[in-house]
Nucleic acid binder design. Sequence first.
DNA 1: CGACTTTGACCTGCGC
DNA 2: GCGCAGGTCAAAGTCG
Length: 367
Amino acid sequence: MSNNEKRSPYQCDPFDYNSHEIDRSSYSYFNYGINSSIYNIPQTPSDPQTQNIHGFESDPSYLMNFTDCLHGSMDYNTLSKAFDISCSSSEVISPPLLDQEDNSNNKATAEGVGDRNPSTPNSLISSSSNEAGAAHHEHENDQDSDKISNKKDKHPKVVSEEAPGDHEDMLKKVSKAKKKEKRQREPRFAFLTKSEVDHLEDGYRWRKYGQKAVKNSPYPRSYYRCTTQKCIVKKRVERSFQDPSIVITTYEGQHNHQCPATLRGSINAVGMLTPSFLASAASGGFDNGSPRFPHELLLTQLLSTPVNNNQLQLQAHHHHDPASSMLYSNLMSTFHENQQQRQQLYVPHDYGLLQDLTPAFSHKQEP
DNA sequence: CGACTTTGACCTGCGC
DNA sequence: GCGCAGGTCAAAGTCG
């Protein structure tokens, strides 16, 4: 608009690397990633609940080498731990996540929150971590009603105007419940990909719904939503400010539909690395106990069996599936880059922002 | 004309 | 309570 004083939210700060010593340290997770490791990232480091849950601070097994992972030198327990998933993950994690003050009665009354999205196919993702998130996303299952309910959410004042009096307490409860609901998000996975293109083709169709400047980074962050109806998956794309050739893609949520490109027979591997996919692969199984697609089988093997590259290539080739082949080649090229050029591929189990990961790493770096 | 992007405004959560 | 930063909305613009 005509507001020249306000900086546009999608414009980035001109970043002076020399004058941001403290802020640079806040991105130290890049340095950790240089060792080509998979990190299981606790939610926000400031969230003591999550830290307790994951035991991140005290358990070194949360740091693992991606190569180890690939070559199967870790067992499923370790791997699923890294992804914060296992058959019993929900049992382990649920109790601490339950809010002791809130009996979640308010949730239902506040927004008519119903059941967990029935279309979410994969329960291997920690159900507890999704519990509140499910409530949050409930109205996102229908994009139209989503907008309506969002409008309701965003204008609680209207409610209070219409119903003055003893609604104050109720509103407090409602907002309290909402806070708790929105605190949790769908599981996230972030990937670092070396690419000149910001928005990598991943087989799914995305609609950009926002772009924001990232603090201390000259590169903006873009927000995308899966355009498939009733699919709640989002992704964020931003460029590493330390290495502009690296694109950080963060997926949130699980596709409840097949990849359109799979149907067309063309796909980029990155798109297959959705949380549900990785979760399934990491835990050694998919819905109905077996991979649904060849590329799922491929990654299952990537993550579980001590095979060499040739075997993998054969495996991908054997399936005659472009998705598998491309997944393979993308993964392997990335992994080779990891080792040779110290580039990195992150597969963190991330409930928070990438920036949120930092203090946990920093903490480890300098106890 | 529908799908998608751009972009200013607004909401929310969190730290101080 | 305030300010900041992340995240989202939605109208306007663009494109094929």
